[in-house]
Design a protein around this nucleic acid. Structure first.
Lengths: 241, 241
DNA sequence: CGTAACGTTGAGCACGGTCAAGGTCCGTGG
DNA sequence: CCACGGACCTTGACCGTGCTCAACGTTACG
């Protein structure tokens, strides 16, 4: 299994062998965390940079009325809190969706890598900026599209992001989220999420059972979702379109 | 009138005289752009970094059905496209709301400043990360709050952000947006935006006429908006709370 | 002083929320 | 191996926030 962080960063720029070695070493030690555990809570002052090497997690915010908004998914290769040295406190929480293997880089590690490997530094910048672009797309998705289209769009995005780290096979991938979590992502109720999924299934666009999603007709799903991968800034390596 | 970029960055970290001088020089030459002009379009490959020194602009995305989602406001001191050297193409457009004075920094300028002034580099990082945090809050705002609360929250945010660059006086500030633009920001129709504004006026929370907004009861507005300025990461300089 | 953009108001409707009930799956312990 | 229980999924009936369509009022500006 390839290192997902390396796989992801190479979507932006090819890394030298020295770059890859540095990243491999820095992420060699992982700790395992169970599913449904808070990795970081809102208001925390994290001290290490965490990278998800295996498993899924999500960023979320809680509201006083008990509501929850999931504001991002974190998939293998993604960095939880690149900003450790800049922002003092977390403005959101992060929790695992499935059991995760997590690498922790100390401040020292990060400083050494970024000072000795300018290409990696650039690639980390790229990663941060892509995260921001994804947030903007989510605003648009939640703000302007119907529930059905929102979910279709989200599935397209996850499909593409997992593809870049080699986690899709024959249109099928693991996605360990419940309908409740899906609903909290696209800002609908779980009941409506259920009905929407049934619609997408009846249209023969997707199959979804337990933790697994299969995209049956990606082209049709993209069309109905108004999806274009531009905002993921993959540099044309994967999806030319 | 103080340089808004310096004012803003000093919310994060104090700048030396040399830092300030560099920023002052870099932003000394401005060009004026009329209201309602696209500064950058989706798909463009911008070559210079633009900073808004005076006036208001916004980031937006267009949808195939003719809809528009405004995904961010750009106020004096904000940077339009800090990512010029990383991302190749714009995934959204930027347009002016009012006549703007805009400073353009060439790649050479930016490289020189960031290499010679590490404090500024840090502050630019901070600025990028705050933009991302704002996006996450907008997702939450649009996804989980009622139309009335959304607008109240947006007004609180703009109030705070304009405060940091000295553009609020006695709770009153310029905000040159139409109800249509407000609606496209919080993802409702302009008709409903109109009704919501009337509600907020009737509750004696705000006064809004033409391009000017006055927050009559900030504390009450914050409470109804579920607003906390934490996500703006102002480092406790302005709003301790 | 005309006209176009913006703001306001009303009536009816629909997407998605709420409430309620039952079904299915799966891990745990007897 | 089965019985229990809890989390998740599914379905139905009803309801409400906010959308649509339409008309009219107001403001700003050439």
């Amino acid at each position: 299994v390839l290192n997902p962080l390396i796989q992801k960063l190479e979507r932006f720029v090819p890394l030298s062998e020295a770059d890859k070695l540095a990243l491999t070493n820095a992420t060699a030690n992982t700790k395992t965390v169970n599913a449904h555990i808070d990795l970081i809570r809102e208001g925390d002052r994290p001290s290490a940079v965490r990278v998800i090497m295996e498993g899924f997690a999500y960023r979320y915010k809680l509201l006083p009325n008990g509501g929850r908004q999931i504001v991002a998914y974190i998939v293998p290769g993604d960095i939880c809190n690149a900003h450790v040295f800049i922002l003092k406190r977390m403005d959101h929480a992060i929790a695992t969706l499935s059991p995760c293997k997590i690498a922790e880089l100390s401040g020292r590690d990060v400083l050494r890598i970024t000072s000795e490997h300018p290409t990696i530094t650039q690639a980390l910048w790229w990663s941060t900026l892509v995260d921001e672009a994804v947030s903007r797309e989510w605003i648009t998705n939640i703000g302007r599209r119907s529930a059905t289209v929102r979910i279709a769009h989200l599935l397209c995005e996850i499909y593409v992001r997992l593809s870049t780290v080699g986690l899709v096979e024959n249109g099928k991938f693991e996605l360990p989220i419940t309908q409740i979590e899906l609903a909290d992502t696209v800002s609908i109720t779980n009941i409506h999420a259920n009905r929407v999924l049934n619609t997408l299934r009846r249209l023969n666009l997707i199959a979804m059972r337990g933790k697994y999603v299969k995209i049956i007709d990606l082209d049709a799903l993209k069309v109905m979702a108004d999806f274009s991968a531009h905002y993921l800034h993959l540099n044309g390596l994967l999806f030319t379109e």
